[in-house]
Design a protein around this nucleic acid. Sequence first.
DNA 1: TTCTGTGAATACCTTCACAGCG
DNA 2: CGCTGTGAAGGTATTCACAGAA
Lengths: 214, 214
Amino acid sequence: MKAEKISEFTTHRLSIYLRCLAALDEEGVETISSKSLAERFNLNSAQIRKDLAYFGQFGVRGVGYPVRDLRRRISNILGLDSLHKVCVIGGGNLGMALAEYGGFLQHGFSVVAVFENSPAKIGTTWRNGVPVVSIGDLKETVRARGIEMAMIAVPAAAAREVCERVFDAGIRAILNFAPVRVVPRPGTKIQSIDLSISLEGLSFFLAGRATGTR
Amino acid sequence: MKAEKISEFTTHRLSIYLRCLAALDEEGVETISSKSLAERFNLNSAQIRKDLAYFGQFGVRGVGYPVRDLRRRISNILGLDSLHKVCVIGGGNLGMALAEYGGFLQHGFSVVAVFENSPAKIGTTWRNGVPVVSIGDLKETVRARGIEMAMIAVPAAAAREVCERVFDAGIRAILNFAPVRVVPRPGTKIQSIDLSISLEGLSFFLAGRATGTR
DNA sequence: TTCTGTGAATACCTTCACAGCG
DNA sequence: CGCTGTGAAGGTATTCACAGAA
């Protein structure tokens, strides 16, 4: 791997390539060229080659990339060789939906706990067996269960404080759903998904067409 | 407004500015400079001025921007003057969580229906009064209720077909949660949120630190 | 003087185009 | 030959720096 720092655009595309390679591998396809891979996402083939070249020389000139091998390597690059343990903070609707979402496990992420502060919910077990734990037990549970990431699904007002507690518990990666900008500590990463802002982007698009911008 | 096309980076930031301006307005602040606004998101002040300049000259030299006025204008630019009616396709956990999420209404989006294909759920009403409607009635309901946007929360396998039906029903803006790339029709827009890919980005970050990339 | 609005400079991301290997 | 890997070119986004208005 080269010393340069990799952009998020690249890592995002790696995930996309990985999905496609997994499907191809399952189909029994053994080799794929950057060109035919590119066509699937209407993307430039040089883009794919550049993305991969950051991490080594995986291809065979005149042939293409060996599907299974490339799949394994990208999986490795993304740190997906082993299952990642994830927790959800906040046992409201969104939190519970996240805890139960089947897609995570399929991609190597296992939700092992939901943290809550409402006594009524603490101690219960969610449908698929995920325990609802007191937020007070965050630190011990994180350590005991080897939790590496947290998904924050608490009200906006609580988000900042919750992130601090999560960092204090030793977690260094957060996926934040609260509509609040939180600044990561050095050595940590926060990725935010703001549903209202996404909808506002769509609203802008619709408004533009309406006023004839086309 | 200038003829240039506006990048998504800009519109995304406009949403962020809007949030901040709303808070300032509520606090009674009357004027804000690009510099002090920039400090809140550690962002460059020229960035903010450029973003706003695409749409007109809103500021007063030597003073800054009038908070309430700028708030109204951005709101207008983003098409947020009126409430937007939104539907959810898919009545699973995620779909129901989206239907009940209070944050949308606060930002001008109202979820007015959840579309489902399971007969057991159709005809029921979700907690906050959102009706669960048969996907077969999509077109009529969209027309009758003036629905402008759809949030897709169906399994990956169904996503593509569902998007087609949504477009056929006259909706031109989609927020897609299914882990599938869907190509928008001309004149439509699809914004995708892929939870697993977001987690993979975090996994890459953690993997990098672990191998000493720092 | 302060702070906007904006051309110029820079940094970054993508695409082109081709040398070179299998 | 076909396709990768990559320097060079082309675009786009961000930042700098300053002229000019209040």
